[in-house]
C-alpha cells in the first residue's frame, strides 16, 4: 500500500512537471497612436510569434490605441506590455505596474516632449483653448510630465488625439491652441513647412514608454525582459523592431518610479 502511495505521489509530481507552460498575454497600450487595432493586427501577430519562439510559451499580443480599447484590454488581465508614458504615470500604482524595460524610439534612451504654439506666442501660459497630442489621453499625468503643474491649473485643456499631424496643421490655422509632439513626431515635423509657422513654448525631457509587468513578478516576466533587451542584437528581430517603431529595448529608466501618481490624485508627485 505504501509502495502504491509513493508511486501515486511520483506520478502526481511527474504530471505537474510536464504540465503545459502558462500562456503569456502581452499588451501594447498606446492611446493616441494613429491607425486601428485591426491594422496593427499583423504586427501584434509577428510580436507574439517572436516572443513565443523565444520564451517557449504561447504568447498572445493585444493592441489598444484609445481609451475604450484600453479599458477592454485591461479587462483581459494582461501579464506584461508596452504602455504609454502618461498611462504609466497615471495608472502605475492603481494597476501595480512594474517597469521591466524601456523602449528606444529612434534609438534614444529618453524622449523629449515639446509644446508647439502658433508662431509669435512665447509663453505656454498665454495659450487658450485646446492643446492636442497623442500622449494627452491622460492629461493629469501629461500636465505633470510636460509642465510640472496640475492639469487643472492650466489656462488650456489637454486633449488626446490619434491625428497628431492634423493637430499640428491646425495650430497655425488657429483651430488648435497648441500641439504636443514627442521626439519622433518633432523629427518628422522638421521637414514640413508647417513647422516654420509654429514655435516651441515648452520642452521637457521625459522617459520613454516603458515595458511593464502587471502585478507580481513571474519567471516569464523576468525572462521576457531579457528577451526584449536582447532584441537589438538579434537579426531575426530587426523587422519586428521597425514595425514596433523602436530601435530595441533598454534598461528601466531610473526616474520612472518617482513619476508615478497616487491613484485619484490631481497633484504632481514631488
Amino acid at each position: 500500500m505504501r509502495r502504491l502511495l509513493v508511486l501515486c505521489l511520483v506520478a502526481a509530481f511527474a504530471a505537474l512537471a510536464v504540465r503545459p507552460a502558462a500562456a503569456l498575454t502581452f499588451a501594447v497600450i498606446q492611446p493616441g497612436q494613429p491607425g486601428s487595432p485591426a491594422e496593427a493586427r499583423p504586427v501584434m501577430d509577428a510580436l507574439a510569434a517572436y516572443l513565443s519562439g523565444k520564451l517557449k510559451v504561447p504568447v498572445t499580443a493585444q493592441y489598444a490605441n484609445d481609451l475604450d480599447g484600453t479599458t477592454q484590454l485591461l479587462a483581459t488581465h494582461p501579464d506584461c506590455g508596452i504602455v504609454g508614458l502618461s498611462f504609466f504615470v497615471e495608472q502605475a500604482k492603481a494597476l501595480q505596474l512594474t517597469p521591466i524595460a524601456a523602449t528606444r524610439p529612434g534609438g534614444a534612451a529618453r524622449d523629449i516632449w515639446r509644446l508647439l504654439a502658433p508662431a509669435g506666442v512665447t509663453d505656454a501660459s498665454a495659450l487658450n483653448g485646446e492643446v492636442a497630442g497623442t500622449m494627452l489621453y491622460y492629461p493629469k499625468a501629461a500636465a505633470c510630465l510636460l509642465l510640472g503643474r496640475a492639469a487643472g491649473t492650466l489656462p488650456f485643456a489637454l486633449v488626446g488625439t490619434n491625428n497628431p499631424l492634423r493637430a499640428l496643421r491646425n495650430v497655425p490655422k488657429g483651430k488648435q491652441a497648441g500641439v504636443v509632439l514627442d521626439r519622433p513626431q518633432f523629427k518628422a515635423a522638421k521637414v514640413l513647412p508647417v513647422l516654420a509657422e509654429c514655435t516651441v513654448v515648452a520642452e521637457r525631457e521625459v522617459p520613454t514608454s516603458p515595458v511593464v509587468r502587471f502585478g507580481p513578478a513571474t519567471p516569464e516576466s523576468a525572462q521576457l525582459a531579457a528577451v526584449l533587451t536582447a532584441m537589438q542584437t538579434d537579426p531575426e528581430a530587426a523587422d519586428l523592431l521597425t514595425l514596433l517603431q523602436t530601435d530595441g529595448f533598454g534598461p528601466v529608466d531610473p526616474d520612472l518610479a518617482a513619476l508615478a501618481m497616487e491613484p485619484g490624485s490631481e497633484s504632481c508627485p514631488r
Binding site: 497628431p164 499631424l165 523629427k187
Partner: peptide, 21 residues
C-alpha cells in the same frame, strides 16, 4: 493616405510624410 501620413508622422518618417502629402 491621410491615415497613412498620420502613422508615418507618429513614427518620425518625415520624408515619407512629404511623399504622401
Amino acid at each position: 493616405l491621410e491615415g497613412l501620413s498620420e502613422k508615418l508622422f507618429a513614427a518620425g518618417a518625415g520624408a515619407e510624410v512629404v511623399r504622401v502629402e
